[in-house]
Amino acid sequence: MILITGGRGQGKTEYALHTFQFSEAELTDGGLCAPEAALSARCITAYHALVRRLLADGRDPVAFTERLCTENSDAVILLDEIGCGIVPLEKNDRILREQTGRCGCILAARAETVIRMVCGIPAAIKGELP
């Protein structure tokens, strides 16, 4: 499993497309896909959006992420960092932010490689750059 993280718009998708030679069709959008599709997808983009949708459906994103790590351990997963701001006023926004952080820690612990993108530049913060 490879996790690619970083803030919004840092070049995660472009990096994944270029580095792993995925076709656009091989990208599974966490903001749109059926959650179960992520369990067999080669590359999941916007995983933070999937966390949001799972929470909105009353599901536990931490349990889902653990299942994903077991069932789809070769996936490339793209996750926006969303926790580096002011604590949101709304309880649901706080839960989303915290659960996204926890899921990121789970994915990173299970991934062989974690890449952080800043300004389009990849840095391996775990393992080595592919």
């Binding site: 932010r97 996204t100 952080g101 820690c105």
Partner: peptide, 10 residues
């Protein structure tokens, strides 16, 4: 030692 990070980052 200073440790910085966002929400729930360990």
């Amino acid at each position: 030692i200073l440790i910085i990070g966002g929400s729930k980052c360990g």
